[in-house]
Design a protein around this nucleic acid. Structure first.
Lengths: 154, 154
DNA sequence: TATTGTTATACTCTATAACTATA
DNA sequence: TATAGTTATAGAGTATAACAATA
């Protein structure tokens, strides 16, 4: 029985919880993340590997520690992400001549190509999940999220 | 050396990534979640145990499966959460006379008291992280998050 | 047969400590 | 001595399969 019977109890909702912006953010982000994961699946990318690839393509030659800071990921967690992207031939670790401890990360042609196609798919995904909002509402939402992050990280 | 030296390279930013609402949501939520965890720490609650407690206090007598659906948590994951709240004497599992498979969840006096104090702390936390936004902007943000969740869950 | 709560399990994401090789 | 990358490890959060008791 999955149909609502006449006189069946209403599903539980909660005005207290739904009044918290933090809870709304969690639930909305979870829904977005689920749809995004489906979107990236054909490219064998997850949100984190996609994000890392985008940053490397946009900032060729950056060091791993730069990438970790840009993504707010601890360095140990970034290692497996870079490993995966390098194993798939999407980026390369290049020894830096000026500092032999560090690696410069550069995208390959294959990495740039996959990044372009995945980015187009993600844009389509965003158009879909934001289809209920006007362009102005999307701008205000983006500004609000940036403001919240800035305030909460202080 | 943590100070910015004159001529030091700028920290990496990325306009492509920062243009994705999904990425902004992830980063903003992560910052909010970190601050919320600190807020709930004195009550020995996490976001999930706090949410569960609020729903039980607001809907005394609901079944575990109702709570799972309300929180969008799979039933197996809810067991340990209910275990923890019950072990701490904040809620109780009551056998339902009408269906001996199910438990009705009811808050204790201690649970209601802790819920009230934790809710006040969370409200203060929200006021803090939302201090950069007007009341109207907060309403619009909440509406946008609800709309996104609705669209993405379709 | 289907459902409630449960157990066991596994996978992802994230965080910390400690190691190595360089600086 | 400090830093870049690495290894090992541990903790959350979340998902599925399968079970016992009950409907």
């Amino acid at each position: 029985m999955t149909e609502t019977a006449p006189g069946a109890p209403d599903p539980v909702t909660d005005d207290t919880l739904d009044g918290f912006v933090g809870y709304l953010m969690k639930r909305a982000f979870a829904a977005v993340q689920t749809d995004l994961a489906r979107t990236l699946e054909p490219f064998e990318l997850r949100m984190m590997t996609f994000s890392a690839l985008v940053v490397v393509v946009d900032n060729p030659g950056l060091r791993q520690s730069d990438l970790a800071q840009a993504l707010s990921v601890e360095r140990p967690n970034l290692v497996v992400i870079v490993d995966e992207l390098e194993r798939r031939g999407l980026i390369r670790r290049q020894q830096m001549p000026t500092d032999r401890r560090a690696y410069a990360l550069v995208p390959t042609d294959a990495g740039r190509g996959l990044c372009r196609r995945a980015t187009a798919a993600v844009k389509a995904h965003e158009d879909r999940i934001l289809s209920g909002l006007s362009a102005n509402q999307i701008d205000q939402l983006s500004d609000a999220l940036r403001a919240i992050r800035r305030t909460a990280e202080e």
